[in-house]
Design a protein around this nucleic acid. Structure first.
Length: 214
DNA sequence: CGCGAGATTGACT
DNA sequence: GTCAATCTCGCGC
């Protein structure tokens, strides 16, 4: 097979479910392989924190496509962030890969991230993870399930139950508990609420309560 | 066509 | 804890 349909189907569900499933999966770019330890779910026009909130644009068009493709964007003019497109074709959704453990090619990752204090810091944070994998916007739109793709996603068994909490850094939708991470992983990034978001649990943005260890 | 905002990081007070 | 760096997007004039 050239494309794993079962894996694609696993990512075609609702945003939070699809994102949660990515935990423990492997991302490979060249010599570097990362095991995903932290993700966030983003939806479409209904999700004010999503890039697709205002509808389809050239940049976010890939989010409206079939699951299993890459959406890479430039954040704050300097850091790249990787999303895995989720949900059925025609609806906008993606999972931001926030952090991972470098399980292969750590020396290569370190060349790209000389500032990393430890191996756990190589891909701890979305910008750092994209840097460790050597990603830029040219990777956006790639089919991650194609064995010939320069960036590949491979499913793996998820041993632990995921913890969940509100998404990091978002100004709106800051109370939606759509961040998922694996317990006891030193590679999971620290939680920082956006200063532009109101106080936690502020009215108007109320969603599900955080659980676990935010 | 100008301008403000942003799914971040790392350095500094 | 606070703050600047840096640039693309997308809305408003």
């Amino acid at each position: 097979m050239t494309r794993d349909l079962a894996v694609a189907a696993a990512l075609a569900g609702p945003p939070a479910q699809a994102a949660c499933r990515l935990l423990g999966w492997l991302l490979t770019s060249g010599p570097v392989t990362v095991r995903i330890t932290e993700v966030e779910a983003y939806a479409g026009p209904d999700d004010p924190a999503s890039h697709a909130w205002r509808g389809r644009t050239p940049r976010t068009a890939v989010m409206f496509g079939p699951a299993g493709h890459a959406y890479v964007y430039l954040s704050y003019g300097m850091h790249h962030c990787l999303n895995v497109v989720t949900g059925p074709d025609g609806t906008a959704a993606a999972a931001l890969v926030r952090a991972g453990e470098v399980v292969q090619g750590a020396p290569d990752a370190r060349l790209r991230r000389p500032a990393a204090a430890s191996d756990a810091d190589l891909a701890r944070g979305p910008g750092r993870l994209a840097a460790a994998l050597g990603l830029d916007r040219s990777f956006s739109g790639l089919d991650l399930l194609d064995p010939d793709s320069p960036l590949r996603l491979v499913a793996a068994n998820q041993s632990a139950v995921a913890l969940r909490g509100p998404r990091v850094g978002v100004a709106r939708g800051a109370d939606t508990a759509w961040r998922f991470w694996l317990p006891d992983e030193p590679t999971v990034s620290a939680y920082r609420r956006s200063p532009r978001a109101g106080p936690a649990g502020s009215p108007g943005a109320a969603d599900s309560e955080p659980r676990g260890r935010p």
